[in-house]
Amino acid sequence: MSRRRFTIRRPRGVAEYGAAALVAAAAVSLVVRLLVWVGEVLVRWWPVVAVLALLGIAVGAWRAAAAAREHTARAQRLSVLRFTLAEIDAMDDRQFEFALRDLLIRDGWSARQVGQQGDQAADVIAGHPTYGRIVVQAKHTKVAAKVGSQVMYQVKGTAGPVHRANSAVVVTNGSFTRDAREWGDRHTIGWADRERLRSWAELGVPLHQILQLPTLARRRLPGTRQPFPAPYERTAPEGRTNGVR
């Protein structure tokens, strides 16, 4: 059934022209009254209007400045290190772990690669004075492959009790099952799929911004002399240059 289209036709006859003229006059009168009312409000409350206008200008300027700073910071990060998804797909598992470590360092974290047999669901451990300690589990896989909930369970079970982390994330160049994403969101285990990884590695958005990690006061980890992992040697797997551009 076709929809009937409504169109406005020109008036016909004296009566219709008269009615149209009355409608137009009423509309003009309403607009004039509205303008008069606005003018009276502006005259009576001009200090308040001026303050609100200045606040609006200030907020707009602050947002523009913040956007400019973020653009500059992102460009600086990308000038230090940038990986494309094609480069990441061509890596092996160990190279992927080192790439994630270096991306965290680029973003201001103190990070080290720890992945090996028996790593208890931690491939990279990093610390930040604002965001605390994070455990990263790397899952380098085929593009079409999906990471399931089992990985989330493992990371949840070791991130805090074993690695004393404030947060944890699973990063893959593939994707996650819906159950894995939903379980991670419910139990505060971050996830970075192919699209989020592209934002991080290729577009320069920091991981902590992508995951919206909560900030915390710098504190000393139990049983350590330092609040975060110690500095490390910038070493890379054989045949790699850490992707530094």
Rank of each mutant, 00 (worst) to 15 (best):
V48Q: 09
A50K: 02
V51E: 12
V51D: 11
V51R: 15
L52T: 10
L52Y: 14
L52I: 08
L54E: 05
G56I: 05
G56W: 03
I57R: 01
I57C: 01
W62E: 03
W62F: 09
R63F: 06
A64M: 02
A67T: 10
A67E: 14
A68Y: 12
A68V: 08
E70N: 06
T72Y: 11
T72N: 11
T72Q: 14
A73L: 04
R74I: 00
A75C: 06
L78E: 07
L81I: 13
R82W: 12
L85F: 03
E87L: 04
D89L: 00
D89V: 00
D93Y: 11
D93V: 03
Q95V: 07
E97D: 07
E97K: 03
F98L: 13
F98V: 11
A99Y: 12
L100F: 14
R101A: 12
L103R: 05
L103Y: 11
L104A: 13
I105Y: 09
D107Y: 11
G108F: 10
G108D: 13
S110Y: 07
S110H: 08
A111V: 09
Q113Y: 15
Q113L: 10
Q113H: 15
V114P: 00
G115T: 07
Q120W: 03
D123V: 07
A126Y: 13
G127F: 09
H128R: 04
Y131L: 12
Y131H: 10
R133P: 00
I134F: 02
A138L: 09
A138F: 04
K139D: 04
H140S: 04
T141K: 12
K142N: 10
K142S: 07
K142D: 06
K142G: 12
V143C: 03
A144T: 09
V147P: 01
G148A: 14
G148N: 15
S149M: 14
S149C: 11
M152I: 15
Y153N: 01
V155R: 00
K156S: 13
G157N: 15
G157A: 15
A159N: 03
A159F: 02
A165P: 07
A168Y: 01
V169S: 01
V170E: 00
V171C: 11
T172Y: 13
N173D: 12
G174T: 13
F176D: 02
F176M: 03
F176E: 01
T177H: 05
T177N: 09
T177L: 08
D179Q: 14
